[in-house]
Computed example of a mutant assay.
Amino acid sequence: MEKQTKGNAEINMHEEMRRAFALLSGKWKLEIMWLLNQRIYRFGELRKAIPGITQHMLTAQLRELEADGLVSRTVFAEVPPRVEYEITSKARGLGPTMQALTAWWNEHGKSVPVKSNARGRKAKGS
């Protein structure tokens, strides 16, 4: 991709897009973001909604998304503690991208070969 000039600063759009892709790269981040785009989730609900994800991996992915400002974590002072995750207003800006992906899938998804859903470790009780 060509370098583009914006004001006095040169921007390498290839590098900028690599940074953007890095925010959502990871085995589970897009799935987590898709779910959180629908509603607020508690940790256990997310874990149940994503077959095959481990507690450790869900925690790591949520921490990265939170550090990047795409997910907010709210801890309620209750016993036992309640923690909720939701996407931030910055992440809501990805809504048109998710809608475009949905439209693409609705048009082309049936032509994509079905793969096994076996990702990661099997969840206990599965």
Score class of each variant (00 low, 15 high):
residue 4 Q to H: 11
residue 5 T to N: 02
residue 5 T to A: 08
residue 7 G to Q: 02
residue 8 N to T: 11
residue 8 N to C: 12
residue 10 E to L: 12
residue 11 I to F: 07
residue 12 N to H: 11
residue 13 M to Q: 06
residue 14 H to G: 14
residue 17 M to R: 04
residue 18 R to S: 12
residue 20 A to I: 12
residue 21 F to N: 09
residue 22 A to Q: 14
residue 23 L to R: 11
residue 23 L to H: 05
residue 24 L to V: 15
residue 24 L to R: 05
residue 25 S to K: 13
residue 28 W to D: 05
residue 29 K to F: 04
residue 30 L to V: 14
residue 32 I to K: 01
residue 34 W to T: 15
residue 34 W to D: 07
residue 35 L to V: 07
residue 40 I to G: 12
residue 41 Y to Q: 03
residue 41 Y to D: 00
residue 41 Y to R: 08
residue 43 F to P: 01
residue 45 E to P: 00
residue 46 L to Q: 09
residue 48 K to M: 11
residue 48 K to Y: 05
residue 51 P to Y: 01
residue 51 P to M: 05
residue 52 G to L: 00
residue 53 I to S: 04
residue 55 Q to V: 06
residue 61 Q to G: 04
residue 64 E to G: 01
residue 64 E to R: 07
residue 66 E to D: 00
residue 66 E to Y: 01
residue 74 T to Q: 13
residue 75 V to E: 14
residue 75 V to H: 13
residue 75 V to Y: 12
residue 76 F to C: 11
residue 79 V to I: 11
residue 80 P to D: 11
residue 82 R to W: 05
residue 84 E to T: 10
residue 85 Y to K: 06
residue 86 E to H: 08
residue 87 I to F: 02
residue 90 K to V: 14
residue 92 R to T: 06
residue 95 G to A: 11
residue 99 Q to R: 13
residue 102 T to R: 15
residue 104 W to R: 09
residue 105 W to Q: 03
residue 105 W to H: 12
residue 105 W to E: 09
residue 108 H to W: 03
residue 110 K to R: 11
residue 111 S to C: 04
residue 112 V to S: 13
residue 112 V to Y: 08
residue 113 P to H: 03
residue 114 V to Y: 06
residue 116 S to N: 04
residue 118 A to H: 12
residue 119 R to Q: 10
residue 122 K to L: 05
residue 122 K to V: 04
residue 124 K to H: 10
residue 126 S to K: 10
residue 126 S to A: 15
